[in-house]
Design a protein around this nucleic acid. Structure first.
Lengths: 212, 212
DNA sequence: CTATCTTTTGAGAGTTACTCTCATTTCATA
DNA sequence: TATGAAATGAGAGTAACTCTCAAAAGATAG
C-alpha cells in the first residue's frame, strides 16, 4: 500500500508554515498554543469545569483574543485539519476504482498515518466528543463540512454534479456508516486498532446494499 | 395503502391526555403553551432575537419554569413526538418485508399523516433548523435518539442484536440518506410534496448498494 | 371540609460564554 | 525612522442557564 501520498499531503501543510510572514507565523503559533492548552486543561479538569478565562491565561492571551481565534469554546475541540487531506487522497486514487473502493483505499492510507502522528490528540478529542453533550452536538456541523468536501471529490470521480440527488444520498450514507464506526469506538465496543478494518467492512457492507 | 395504523398510533397518544390527573394535564398544557408561543415568536422575530424571558412572559410562566420544561431554548424547537410512532409503525409491517421495505412502507404511511395534521409546525421547525446554527447542531442529538428507536425496531424484525455492528451501520446509513433528503428540502432543491418519493427512492438506492 | 404532605412554581442572585467598542501595541513598508 | 495596517487588551454589556429557598397549588387522609 502506498504511504507516500498522505505524507506529501501532510508535508505540504507543514511546509507552508515555515516560509510565512512573521505575522502569520505568530498567529499560527498562538492558535496552536490556545488549542494545546485548552485540550490539556479539558483533559485535566473536564470541559465544563474549564473556563475560557483559564484557557486564555494559560495561553497568555486575553479572553478577547481567544474568541478571535475560535468563535466558540467548542470549536477548539471540534476543528481539525484532516478533511482536505482526505479529499485530496480520494482524488489521487486510480480512476478505475469505484467510489466506495476509492474511499476504502483512502482510509487505509490516511488512518494509520493520522494515528501515528496525532494519536494522543485524537484520543482526547474523541473522548471529549463522546462525553460532552455540547461537543456531540457540534459534531454535526463538522459533518456538514466533511460532506461538502466528500461530495465534491465523489462528484469529480463520477462525473456527476455535486448536488446530484444520488451523489448527496451516497455522501450522507458514507458519513452515516462512518458515524456508526465512531460510535462503536466511543462506546468501547471497538478499539482504535480495529477501526480501519471496521470502516473498511462498513463501506463494503454499504456497497452490498446493507443486507440485514 | 393502509391509513388506519398511524391514526391509531396518534390516537393512542391523544387519548392518554384526556384521562390524566389534573396535575399532569396542566403540565402538558403548560408545555404546549410554551412550545406554541416560542415557535410563534421565533417565526415573528427570529430565534436569536427572541429571549427566554419573552417566551416565558407570553406563556405566562416564570423563566425558571421555562427551564423546568425545556432544558435549553433549543429543545423547544428540536423536541418532537414522531420517533416512537415511526418505530411502532415499523413493527406493524408484515414480517416478510425486508428492513428497507418496511421502512419505505412506514414512511408512506406516516409522512402524509404528519403533513396533514402538523404542516405549519413542521415547516416552522424545519426552517428554523435550517437557518439557526445552534439548532442545526442539536439535530445530531435528536438523530441519536432516532437511532436508538430505529435500531431497536430493526433488531426485532431481523432477530439480530440491537448492537450488532451491521445493524448499527444500517441504522446510521438510513439516517444518513434521510438527512440527505432533509437537506435537499431545506436547500429548496426539493418540495414537501416530493419528499415522500425522494425518501422512497433514497432507501431503494441504499438497498442497491448506492451505485454512483 | 380541614389538615397535612407532595409537587410545582416564582423570585432572585450568581456564573459564564459570547459581543462590541475603543484605545494601545505590534508588525509591515517606504 | 516615520507612517499605515493589523492584532491585541481592557472593559462594559447581554442572555442562557444554574441553584436555592420560600410560597402556592394539587393530592390524600381523617
Amino acid at each position: 500500500m502506498s504511504t507516500s501520498s498522505p505524507d506529501r499531503a501532510v508535508d505540504r501543510l507543514e511546509d507552508r508554515l515555515s516560509r510565512l510572514p512573521l505575522r502569520e507565523r505568530k498567529k499560527l503559533r498562538t492558535r496552536r498554543a490556545i488549542q494545546d492548552h485548552a485540550l490539556r486543561l479539558f483533559a485535566e479538569q473536564g470541559y465544563d469545569a474549564t473556563t475560557v478565562e483559564q484557557i486564555a491565561a494559560a495561553a497568555e492571551i486575553s479572553p478577547s483574543t481567544f474568541f478571535r481565534y475560535f468563535p466558540t469554546k467548542e470549536d477548539v475541540v471540534v476543528t481539525d485539519e484532516y478533511d482536505p487531506i482526505m479529499a485530496q487522497v480520494i482524488r489521487e486514487q486510480p480512476a478505475e476504482l469505484s467510489a466506495i473502493d476509492a474511499l476504502r483505499a483512502m482510509l487505509r492510507e490516511v488512518l494509520p498515518q493520522a494515528f501515528t502522528t496525532d494519536m494522543e490528540t485524537i484520543k482526547t478529542r474523541l473522548r471529549l466528543t463522546a462525553e460532552v453533550p455540547a461537543l456531540r452536538a457540534r459534531t454535526f456541523e463538522s459533518m456538514r463540512n466533511t460532506f461538502e468536501l466528500l461530495s465534491e471529490a465523489i462528484s469529480e470521480r463520477t462525473g456527476r454534479a455535486p448536488d446530484d440527488p444520488e451523489v448527496e444520498a451516497f455522501g450522507w450514507a458514507v458519513l452515516g456508516v462512518m458515524q456508526a464506526a465512531m460510535n462503536r469506538l466511543m462506546d468501547g465496543k471497538a478499539t482504535y486498532e480495529e477501526l480501519p478494518d471496521l470502516l473498511d467492512h462498513y463501506l463494503e457492507f454499504l456497497g452490498r446494499g446493507c443486507p440485514v
